[in-house]
Design a protein around this nucleic acid. Structure first.
Lengths: 137, 137
DNA sequence: CATGATCCGTAGCCATTGCTACATTTAAAA
DNA sequence: TTTTAAATGTAGCAATGGCTACGGATCATG
């Protein structure tokens, strides 16, 4: 008799797509933050923010432009599209909830910041709601 | 005056390395589970488990062999090295804690399983300790 | 307006993780 | 034993995200 093992809940066929999506979330959030802090967001600002070369940023910005999340013109600042802004707001809200949640749970700020940046991308709506509920008490 | 924006807590310079590491964690955990369930772990078992082609599994198994996490011989089952088993146990323990934690938080089992698989890789020792403490109460 | 510093784009390399197509090995069945 | 099905390996392609090196654009400043 051959036992059957169930496949993962999150199919791995989408690993690359999921990573690309996380990158998109990180970038729109960063663009929103950098515009808020600096007034505009240049490619080099993103490169410094993420600690990568401007080349990496440039290519990713181009991809996100093709995906209608960012506006770009050669040698001009990066801006958010309507869709990009919507995503950025959602991501930032979720990020803040996760961060506050971890700290409320007793994790020190430093570790809460580190972990929340990794965790946030994997927090579904149900988990997010549960975290918000926990924070209210 | 130019404002300074702090870089992310988790430098993105290590994105690829982090993803590769997550893959390693997922694979050793899967190998341990499949051996427990099926008695042995074949490349195709992993392919079915992760919903990817056997080619993808084959290449990753080779890499993890080079990293001393897995034993492999051509056309033979995949096994864990001592180091791989140690990692697998740690990963499984953390996974179970995160899953139990989410369910205790009020997330339904289905969503807890989905989210825990993404979240687990980003739970540091401090956050893990906080989750365990929460579960004790 | 010239010029040099800074910013940005392009070319081209690598690693990881997907894939299809085809070859080879293993093991079971005829 | 031979043949056939299943499992595994290999070749080679694409997308994503790292990088260095180099060249063109922009802008402040002399």
């Amino acid at each position: 008799m051959v036992k059957k093992v169930k496949a993962r809940s999150v199919p791995f066929s989408q690993t690359r797509a999921r990573h690309a999506n996380e990158t998109a979330e990180d970038y729109v959030e960063a663009v929103m933050e950098l515009i808020a802090e600096l007034g505009e967001c240049r490619v080099l600002d993103l490169a410094r923010y993420f600690n990568v070369s401007h080349v990496t940023v440039s290519r990713i910005v181009k991809r996100l432009h093709d995906e209608n999340l960012l506006h770009t013109m050669p040698y001009k600042p990066v801006e958010l599209t309507v869709e990009g802004l919507k995503l950025a707001k959602r991501v930032k809200d979720r990020h803040l909830v996760v961060l506050a949640f971890l700290m409320e749970l007793g994790v020190d700020k430093t570790n809460a910041e580190i972990d929340s940046e990794g965790i946030e991308h994997h927090v579904g709506s149900k988990t997010l709601a549960a975290m918000k509920k926990f924070l209210k008490k």
